[in-house]
Amino acid sequence: MTQQLADQQARIQAVPASGTHAPASRKRWSGRARRDFFIFLALALPNLLLIAVFTYLPLINNIYYSTLDWTLGSATATVVGLENYITFFTSADAVKVLGTTAAFTAVTVGGSMALGLLVALALNSKVRGTTFARSAVFAPYVLSGVGVGLVWLFIFDPGYGVLAWILRGLGQQSPQWVNDPQLSLVMVIVVYVWKNLGYCAVVFLAGLQSLPQDVMEAASLDGASSFRRFLSMAMPLLSPTTFFLLITTMLSSLQAFDLIRIMTPLGNGTSTLIYEAYLQAFGAYNRAGYSAAISVVLFAILLIITVVQLRFVERKVHYS
């Protein structure tokens, strides 16, 4: 009862209070706009500052560092201009690192998309348990790359791994997966695809389920086989999904680090751009300037892919 009274009083008081301000509406308006201005800053500024300092500033700093001959931890550095880039692109490293990056990216993107599409088609069937299977297949994508890398390193162990045991059963000797440069790349690619194909599968599945059912059904009634329907109807209609996946998986493959670090710490055959940049700065050499130059090269590649994506999305890769 008293509460109600107090509320009423507050309301009565509030009315004339705002009333007195009403005539000076122009002034009040600007006052309100100014208050909104500060409220906006209070709410958004911490996040915006963090993004500016830890996302945008590093891009500029990286370009600056890439022009230095600088040992990480040392107080002095000399400006050398483009020398780090020249050193990188004229060394044998460049061919090796860019080749490894291209191979790793191409095979992981192709592999996880192809297998992801197959799994998506299996998940799209109308049998029980697809919901569970969908979650199960997606699970590796959210797991720690370090944990997953260790589990698979054990499976690939030439002495006591499951794979060696299977190969022994077939009368074969297990190869030295980690020590052989080519095989170590194969090993990391296999594990990477295992970890990421569920993502592709779930995205493809969403695409398949959003296909216009009436059109697919009409084709089915016209006697088109399911393979035919898939090839000449589902695939073209899925092209926006395919393009989206191509870009996102390419971007994440180019940034793959955890598995490479845990399975092949020394790099060797698995030194992609990102891993080479890490090794140069934080491995044995502490060549900060050189590492920054490699990072800038990587960033340029990622930027080109992103720009291509944005241009295509604007033009809409769409059939509907």
């Binding site: 996302t55 590093p58 891009l59 990102i274 940049a277 992103t306």
Partner: peptide, 11 residues
């Protein structure tokens, strides 16, 4: 779209 991986050295 800016990958965290390329910012590790400056950060």
């Amino acid at each position: 779209m800016v990958p965290a991986q390329v910012s590790i050295l400056p950060n």
